[in-house]
Design a protein around this nucleic acid. Structure first.
Length: 490
RNA sequence: GGUCCCAUCGUCUAACGGUUAGGACGUUGCCCUUUCAAGGCGAAAAUUCGGGUUCGAUUCCCGAUGGGAUCACCA
């Protein structure tokens, strides 16, 4: 069985790059009827941020990516875990890491290191000054057994370091990058267990991925260069290695690694800005992957069917907001008025109470603009003219091929005709039919009637069509607005 | 600087030795049209540079250049 995992550290909010990583992990699991696991990598107490776990979970849920196992929820101020390989918070697995560090020590794959931070800083400084290769200098690599015992019994603080072989080459096939090889002599003796008893990432991932039966390690490119350490650990333990896939990075416009300084990087930012999950998912999935043909629109389910890691690009992709906007507009148009109405509610905030509208009427109002805006956040303002006719200049009522006199004449005639009891258009099609017939009967051109009508109803240079607006406004309000227009013109 | 990875229009990308180098976003022209949006039809726009291999290189090899990642008791 295939299993993948997404392993965020609770240091902030969900990054869009992490969203893509999580998405790809999820897709691989789903398309193979495997499981998608969520593990929290909170081994750095200093960096843990309160509220980060629920924030990440919420963002994933919003996107439609929910874990099958591991940390699956957050209730009553605590994580909800599911599965037989728990706990799924690394901070609760300290004993496990200690046991495994001991195994490594026994096997000679790791060693005690008593170097002080000060000494390490000096080493680093010297290396920098002399332009030497950086890394641990191996000071404690071959310590005398008695010295180790003495230090240990004297409670000298220590770490456990990986005893990386000095010769040979570590080679592996990355599902995305292909064959990659590193000379072992350049791989550092990484700290595995810290002085405080917490593991570093390197020990914790390998131990957990094995214990949790992860078959595919899918993660960001930044991990590629530490993979040899992980491979060596698998070999030391005698464990079967997972498949590795290192995803290309998401980039800023200037091709540097996507960062906060150059725009929004948190999924939450995009939710707040009114983007749809379908749009963000589709967009982010296509940053580095495509189906190999011209199709651009993919739902989560369709992605699960067609996605493959082998088709993922090797190079980084610029996070291009214009394309995201296009996707968002597209998906907004695909939704029904009712669906958009429901999604847009939070963007109205308290104002929604003042509107005192029935939900169907509200959906109709939203329908006026849902195909014209790019995000949900723009909708309240876009639709404002329905509730409050904006003040506008009389000049705006005059069509480019018309005159003030003609505008007055037509608007008056239209108003008088509408005022008769027999004219009671109910919906958009009805309005179009009745007014259309009237225009034909009067032998007017469309523009000379429709332009001033539309401006009278919307108070705007650009707006939805007059029939749509009239249907939403209703006959009484249409008459009122025609009256306002005529007063302005006279 | 050491190590490793990468390189097609402005951006996301297709091409698995032979194509007028294709699509999408964006830009832009026209059409539709009461405005806007949407839609339709067009346009401009790319193989980083050298060497090989080959009858033939975007594609394979080598080098240069450029970009990126990583070199923590952070992940």
């Amino acid at each position: 069985m295939i299993s993948t995992r997404f392993a965020p550290s609770p240091t902030g909010f969900l990054h869009v790059g992490s969203l893509r990583t999580a998405l790809y992990c999820y897709l691989i699991a789903k398309q193979n009827s495997g499981k998608f696991l969520l593990r929290v990598e909170d081994t750095d107490q200093k960096r843990s941020v309160e509220g980060a776990i629920p924030a990440v979970l919420d963002a994933l849920k919003w996107a439609g990516i929910e874990p099958d196992e591991g940390v699956v929820g957050f209730e009553n101020n605590d994580v909800v875990e599911k599965g037989d390989c728990g706990p799924y918070l690394q901070s609760k697995r300290l004993k496990i890491y200690e046991q495994h560090a001991n195994i490594l020590l026994e096997k000679g794959c790791a060693y005690y290191c008593f170097c002080t931070p000060e000494r390490l800083a000096q080493v680093r400084e010297r290396q920098e000054k002399n332009h030497e290769a950086s890394g641990y200098d191996g000071h404690c690599r071959e310590l005398d057994i008695n010295e180790i015992k003495n230090n240990l019994s004297a409670n000298v603080p220590y770490v456990v370091r990986l005893k990386m072989p000095k010769t040979g080459v570590t080679e592996f096939t990355d599902l995305i990058k292909g064959k990659v090889s590193f000379k072992n002599e350049f791989v550092d003796d990484q700290v595995l267990l810290k002085t405080d008893g917490f593991p570093t990432y390197h020990l914790a991932v390998v131990v957990d991925d094995h214990l949790m039966a992860i078959t595919h390690v899918i993660r960001g490119d930044e991990w590629l260069s530490s993979t040899p350490k992980h491979i060596y650990l698998y070999e030391c333990f005698g464990w079967e290695k997972p498949v590795f896939a290192h995803l290309p990075l998401l980039l800023n416009a200037d091709k540097s690694k996507l960062s906060k300084r150059q725009g929004d990087v948190a999924v939450g930012d995009y939710i707040k800005k009114g983007y749809l999950p379908e749009a963000l998912i589709n967009f982010v999935a296509f940053l580095g992957w495509n189906p190999g043909d011209d199709r651009e629109i993919f739902s989560l389910a369709e992605l699960a069917k067609e996605f493959s890691l082998e088709k993922v690009n090797k190079s980084g992709a610029v996070f291009n907001l214009e394309k995201l906007d296009w996707y968002n507009k597209y998906y907004l148009r695909q939704l029904s008025n009712e669906q958009v109405a429901e999604l847009v509610l939070p963007f109205f905030g308290d104002k929604i109470k003042d509107l005192r509208l029935k939900i169907e009427d509200f959906a109709n109002v939203i329908g006026l603009e849902k195909g014209r805006v790019t995000t949900l956040a723009e909708l309240p303002e876009a639709v404002g003219f329905v509730f409050n006719l904006p003040d506008y200049l009389a000049d705006m009522l005059i069509w480019k091929k018309s005159s003030p006199e003609e505008a007055i004449k037509i608007l008056s005639e239209l108003k008088d005709w509408l005022n008769t009891k027999s004219v009671q258009p109910k919906n958009k099609i009805d309005w179009e039919k009745r007014v259309g017939e009237w225009i034909v009967q009067k032998s007017y051109s469309n523009g000379v009637v429709l332009w001033p009508l539309r401006v009278a109803l919307s108070g705007q240079e650009k707006s939805p069509g007059p029939y749509e607006i009239a249907a939403v406004l209703g006959k009484d309000e249409v008459l009122k607005r025609l009256e306002v227009a005529l007063i302005k013109l006279k």
